[in-house]
Write a protein that binds this DNA or RNA. Structure first.
Length: 251
DNA sequence: AACTAATCCAACCGCCACCCG
DNA sequence: CCGGGTGGCGGTTGGATTAGT
């Protein structure tokens, strides 16, 4: 399931993310937040485009992300919302905490679409018609943007960071340079990376995968600028509990 | 065991909306 | 209002894995 690593004409790396790159991205975002995705790779020491970094973070590296093992309830919610909204994956994902739009989209195409087609062919014309009418639309509504979603959580984070002492915008470039040097130092000493980062619990079964633990003092510094909704959105207790969970088998 | 087809999903691409000067 | 920069979204693809012959 990996794309062959390659480089585009700008020297930006494409293809599968390496554990090394994941470490760098996690380390940077947990320390400084995602203040600017396009500038971030430069300061984080990544030869990736900002889009790629954002995607990687949103779909796999951010806290509380869930992988695989869809429950019947989740499937039902997806089927129901898809019938109402069509291919508005981000809106659907907003109703399923821990699920990314990309993963829901994949899950839909690989398994739920068949179920939906089966239901449609065995239900009234009206119902199947509503599914067809809803699909393919892509419009942002006000309520959609105000919905509590992981995306909005991150947006909140950005807003918070912009106005806080933790904002990289207020940090000097020397500080970013220091970050990179610190990362290299920690990497060489091994101390920073020794504890597995288990947000994606699939890491736990991979011997080639060692990602850093999260220092929540850095992720959620005790700042008056950081709103309660943002802090609670990460559900730290749940996050820590994931360390005890065993890997759920893929496929 | 070897080969082929089907499945799955991580990642890319292009477009659009929003923001700001 | 306009244009550039950026983030976000949904469609699509590359290729590894799994199932079937």
């Amino acid at each position: 399931m990996v794309r062959t690593p390659s480089y585009d004409q700008n020297g930006k790396k494409k293809g599968t993310w390496t554990p090394e790159e994941d470490r760098k991205l996690v380390a940077y975002v947990t320390k400084y937040g995602c203040w600017n995705w396009r500038q971030l790779p430069k300061y984080a020491g990544l030869a990736r485009c900002g889009k790629s970094c954002r995607l990687r973070w949103m779909n796999y590296l951010r806290p509380n992300i869930k992988r695989g093992n869809y429950t019947k309830e989740e499937d039902d919610i997806i089927l129901k919302l898809h019938a109402q909204l069509g291919n508005r994956w981000s809106t659907i994902a907003a109703q399923l905490p821990g699920r990314s739009d990309n993963e829901i989209k994949n899950h839909w195409h690989t398994s739920l679409k068949k179920r939906a087609n089966y239901y449609a062919s065995n239900s009234s014309d009206g119902e199947s018609k509503s599914i067809n009418q809803a699909s393919g639309t892509r419009r942002k509504s006000v309520e959609n943007q105000n919905a509590i979603s992981p995306n909005n959580c991150m947006r909140s984070y950005e807003i918070v960071l912009e106005s806080s002492q933790w904002s990289p915008k207020q940090s000097s470039s020397e500080e970013h340079q220091a970050f990179q040097e610190e990362a290299i130092l920690m990497e060489n000493s091994g101390s920073f990376w020794t504890e597995p980062f288990l947000v994606d619990t699939s890491f736990s079964s991979r011997t080639d995968y060692v990602v850093p633990s999260i220092d929540w003092e850095l992720v959620c510094p005790p700042s008056p600028f950081i709103g309660h909704e943002f802090l609670s959105s990460f559900d730290l207790e749940d996050y820590n509990c994931q360390k005890l969970e065993t890997e759920h088998p893929k496929k």
